[in-house]
Design a protein around this nucleic acid. Structure first.
Length: 546
RNA sequence: GGGUGCGUAGCUCAGCUUGGAUUAGAGCACUAGCCUUCUAAGCUAGGGGUCGAGGGUUCAAAUCCCUUCGCGCCCGCCA
């Protein structure tokens, strides 16, 4: 029972407009539980919003869910029938449980979400953490909105960097180091090769040989890829992130010829400085084929997109990739469009900002070294274990706390902006942090874990009690909003506010032993369901005891 | 130079899509209260802001438009 939806249906009769996005919840509850600003009708009706409000207030027929409607200046303020609303909402949450908040907007629609996508030759650095977490949440949110979601990890497993590490491995590689710590070893080789320009020619040669199918190089490449994926999967499992498909640029190697043919046929491809390009006007030039004939990631991305559309007939394809690639994706979508693919308008690039360190400096160049995801995770778990010492928290919870700290620390930020990665702040147990959310859940659980859901009769609702209820009732529109804006931080902020409301309730309303005991037990239990649902969209698991 | 994004409290951020009910909000830090009482990892109250600057549109601007300053990112053979 989405209260905004319900009211907007009623108001459609009176106003003739869909007001679902205009309705707002006043900060001051004495003004009403939900209200309609009438400014938007002012031009159409050629009346002042104040007059409109006073006219409508007479016309509107309220269902039982509302107790009254008042006009105050240009606003129409609606008051809920508190007991009826509370009881209905709690009933609904209990009956829907894990489904509460979800909807079927995306029913029988496919959405492809590409995220994480580390480059094997380079490193699995902290920069990929954002894509991993944000992408995972975006996928979860779409699923909860009824979409059929295809989660793709599109590995950077092809391109000139592979010429570098293949050549580098032959020159400086060690079987032992590769076995022990493949990701780091390959990264070290890559760095070494980049430092010396003398290796460039041979590296390019190596990639050309790989691309044309040199057996021994392909074998070596496969090994690098396998070992890397194995390590990535360990990290994903720690973070609770999953994919339906592990794909990669290499997979589309065989389809590149077709792309070039089609571009040539459609007279899009022109030669420029020895290379083959597509000219895009304001968007510059998309480089399709290098002067030595080898491919580029633009070429591969074109082939990949076309293939994905064939396979999945997606209604939406979301690329969760860093903002430094904005131009690349604008060019990619435009090339696809020029090739006549109408679906190119359904492709979106969700561009995340960078992580900065505590001083606001670029993280990846800190001390001239890349920060590996694996190290960050291990370090966080250690810090979490340390900080829960003397807090009577189980070891099992330490892992979840570390996870929640990292995930929430990231997802509470607007995805498009840069974010400060400060693990000490993320792990704080107070304030706007993951551990605070988990604590609040555990606290709620400790009140009601010994009780079952009980029947109750109407009670006099305290202010903080009803505030919490209204907050729980907002969840469905949050779910919808975060999907429409492709923005998980909407869910993060909601989760935090929900917890704040709960803690305010907790301090002003005694549960066990109060005259409203039965009602409040149900309220706390339904709060737990809502919080669990909203955190799971972010990829955070709740813990019952800490 | 061109493109693009950002600039809100000492610090970290939300609000900008869709201007109004936000007299500009949170958290951290700071000050003062509240634990024999469902986990004080919390709650309550307080100080702290010319929303980078200037102009414009509007009955109304943190929000829209223009100019300007500062910073990030991108701009053909990397991804």
């Amino acid at each position: 029972m989405d209260i905004k939806l319900m009211l907007s249906k009623i108001l459609k009769k009176t106003t003739g407009e869909d007001v679902s996005n205009i309705l707002e919840i006043p900060a001051d509850p004495s003004r009403g539980d939900i209200s309609l600003p009438c400014f938007f009708l002012s031009k159409k009706l050629k009346k002042s919003p104040v007059d409109i409000a006073s006219e409508f207030v007479e016309k509107i027929k309220l269902p039982a869910m509302f107790s009254k409607v008042e006009n105050e200046g240009p606003y129409l303020n609606f008051f809920l029938n508190k007991n009826l609303y509370s009881n209905k909402l709690i009933e609904e949450i209990f009956s829907l449980k894990g489904e509460y908040g979800g909807n079927s907007i995306g029913k029988s629609k496919n959405v492809v979400v590409e995220y994480s996508s580390p480059n094997i030759a380079k490193s699995f650095g902290i920069g990929h953490l954002r894509s991993t977490l944000v992408g995972n949440a975006i996928a979860n949110i779409h699923k909860f909105n009824g979409y059929n979601v295809i989660r793709i990890n599109y590995l950077g497993d092809w391109g000139t960097p592979f010429g570098k590490i293949l050549f580098g491995y032959e020159k400086f590689g060690s079987k032992k180091s590769l076995k022990e710590d493949p990701v780091k070893h390959l990264f070290d080789l890559y760095v070494k090769m980049n430092k010396n320009e003398d290796y460039d020619e041979e590296s390019k040669e190596y990639f050309k040989r790989l691309e044309s199918g040199d057996k021994s190089l392909v074998k070596q490449w496969k090994l690098f890829r396998e070992l890397s994926i194995k390590e990535f999967k360990e990290i994903y499992s720690l973070l609770g992130v999953k994919f339906d498909v592990y794909s990669g640029e290499a997979e589309y190697n065989s389809k590149l010829g077709g792309v070039i043919k089609e571009l040539t046929k459609k007279k899009l491809l022109v030669e420029d400085d020895g290379a083959n390009v597509v000219k895009l006007g304001d968007l510059g030039v998309a480089l399709i084929q290098k002067s030595d004939g080898s491919s580029l990631y633009m070429t591969r991305d074109i082939a990949t997109a076309i293939d994905r559309y064939k396979k999945y007939k997606f209604d939406k394809m979301i690329y969760e990739v860093g903002s430094e690639q904005k131009l690349h994706f604008r060019q990619l979508f435009e090339v696809l469009n020029l090739m006549g693919n109408k679906w190119s308008k359904d492709c979106v690039h969700i561009a995340h900002g960078m992580y900065l360190d505590e001083d606001g400096k670029k993280f990846s160049t800190r001390k001239g070294k890349t920060v590996f995801m694996k190290d960050v995770l291990n370090e966080t778990v250690k810090l979490a274990e340390k900080s829960i010492k003397g807090r009577n928290v189980s070891k099992n919870a330490a892992m979840e706390i570390a996870k929640a700290a990292i995930i929430y620390g990231d997802l509470k930020n607007h995805p498009g902006r840069d974010a400060i990665f400060n693990i000490d702040k993320f792990l704080e147990f107070s304030g706007d942090t993951g551990p605070y959310l988990l604590y609040t859940y555990a606290r709620a659980n400790s009140i009601v874990s010994d009780f079952k859901v009980r029947k109750f009769s109407d009670v006099v609702l305290e202010e903080n009690e009803f505030k919490l209820i209204k907050m729980m009732g907002e969840f469905p529109s949050i779910v919808k909003n975060s999907m429409e804006n492709i923005n998980p931080s909407v869910v993060s902020h909601y989760s935090y506010e929900l917890c704040q409301s709960f803690n305010e309730f907790y301090h002003s309303c005694k549960v066990v032993g109060s005259p409203s005991e039965a009602f409040r037990i149900n309220l706390v239990k339904s709060f737990m369901i809502v919080l669990e649902n909203s955190l799971s969209l972010l990829g955070i698991n709740v813990v019952k005891r800490m």
